[in-house]
Design a protein around this nucleic acid. Structure first.
Lengths: 247, 247
DNA sequence: CAATGTCAAGAGCGCTGCTCTCGTTTGTTG
DNA sequence: CAACAAACGAGAGCAGCGCTCTTGACATTG
């Protein structure tokens, strides 16, 4: 079903003592069982008691390893972000270095196939926020931005390589306040691309996830679209044109 | 806070007897209280017992009026769909009849402002599916498709009026299987627009909701974009170009 | 060997959805 | 107007949940 070793579990610096090794293993087991429950029943139905039962232990025992339900959610969140990030990295790295269009498509398809494969995890990351749960930014920001960082990287590399159509139609003016936001992003991420490219990149980003969310969340209706692969592929082609990525 | 009369509550054909009038009123009260709880605590935390408390009644009493929690969710779902549909209709109807670009922008902005105003309801409709809850299609399909029907209507009317740029760049071929899906839609909805327009319309549809979802679900990060109105406006402008809507 | 620390177990609190029973209220009808 | 049946609210109860606290068993360490 799912891979045995969750990527998000922090390994202690010196897990020398058998106690610490056992403890690390138990936490890994809890995360693995939690991921299975998440996949089957969804995030809102994630129950520490059920995880404890599967672990063959009384419910209060898991509180030795996981502070509370929110903490387990955070572990699963980080785990899922890293799974997605690994999938995306692998797919993009498999493409030729200067074929930016192929890299873009590979990224989007990797996100989509992971989302379809793990709808509950996708819902946890990109669906409605879990009520009463606030992700701790200091732990989730880095894994949570891997995909967008990679996507922006592709667009910016394409721009630097002169692979972007400058004359995307139609030209749209960027208002001043939006330009300020984009300038801040450009500075923070060391980008070269101009405002119009960055803004269109943001649109492509939201559009890709919008299309995937519609599919995973069942917004298309039961049998409106049978050719979902072709639909997504077509959407990527159009979005490619939006940023001026020639392929 | 919220309007007093929920649009979704079906009025009996003959609410003549005082019993039935009282019953209808009680159900309306339950939906109203449910909507308030939804707005404050979210869908997953919607509790019949809490609604009963606010109604000043013991928990088992509400089961006289609402079959179970899922039934209340369905009522809230229909209620929210109709609120959104009403908002969208009003906004679109306020535009000049042959200004299709303005109608498109009015529709998208109406959806966004409703979503920002009612994030919990938006999450219920367009976020992660509530685990274990399956919306009864025969009751939710009609209100649930009001927005997309309206959007497609705008695009098709624009096409019939010759207001769509035929030469959207770049031309993208529509694979056969996707064309079959689009043909089915064209037949069902009595449309005139060609495949490429319909396919791009679907992309615009998903993109608009993708952008709104990112904003409502906090995917942009806390302070990445301060100029959210301008960002959305820009995205609409680009998407307008995607379907060839000149404005 | 003894002190220390870690662990699973169990009881318990308050919350949830939901069911069943038991009187009471209420509108209708003879 | 009185009798009746339907509708109703209250309450107890079951099983599940997150979470806390105490207790006794065990392993590690000095």
């Amino acid at each position: 079903m799912t891979s045995a070793e969750p990527a998000a579990v922090k390994v202690r610096e010196k897990p020398s003592t058998p106690r610490e090794r056992a403890r690390t293993q138990t936490i890994a087991d809890i995360v693995r069982l939690g991921r299975e429950h998440l996949a089957v029943h969804g995030a809102a139905a994630l129950s520490l008691r059920a995880v404890a039962r599967d672990l063959g232990v009384v419910s209060s025992a898991v509180y030795r390893y996981v502070e509370n339900r929110d903490e387990l959610l955070t572990l699963l969140l980080i785990d899922a972000y890293n799974q997605l990030g690994d999938d995306v990295d692998e797919a993009v790295n498999a493409e030729v270095e200067d074929d930016f269009a192929a890299q873009f498509r590979a990224l989007a398809k990797a996100v989509r196939s992971w989302a379809v494969r793990e709808p509950a995890s996708y819902s946890l990351l990109f669906g409605s926020p879990v009520p009463g749960y606030q992700a701790p930014g200091e732990r989730t920001t880095v894994p949570g931005t891997r995909v967008i960082v990679r996507l922006v990287g592709i667009f910016d590399a394409a721009y630097r390589a002169g692979a972007l159509n400058a004359s995307v139609s139609p030209a749209v003016v960027i208002p001043e306040k939006l330009a300020a936001d984009l300038a801040a992003i450009r500075g923070e991420m060391n980008l070269a691309a101009p405002d119009s490219t960055l803004a269109r990149g943001v649109l492509v980003w939201t559009s890709v996830f919008g299309a995937i969310s519609f599919e995973v969340f069942g917004q298309y209706g039961r049998d409106t679209f049978a050719a979902r692969d072709e639909l997504f592929d077509h959407q990527l082609s159009v979005l490619q044109g939006v940023v001026g990525l020639q392929g």
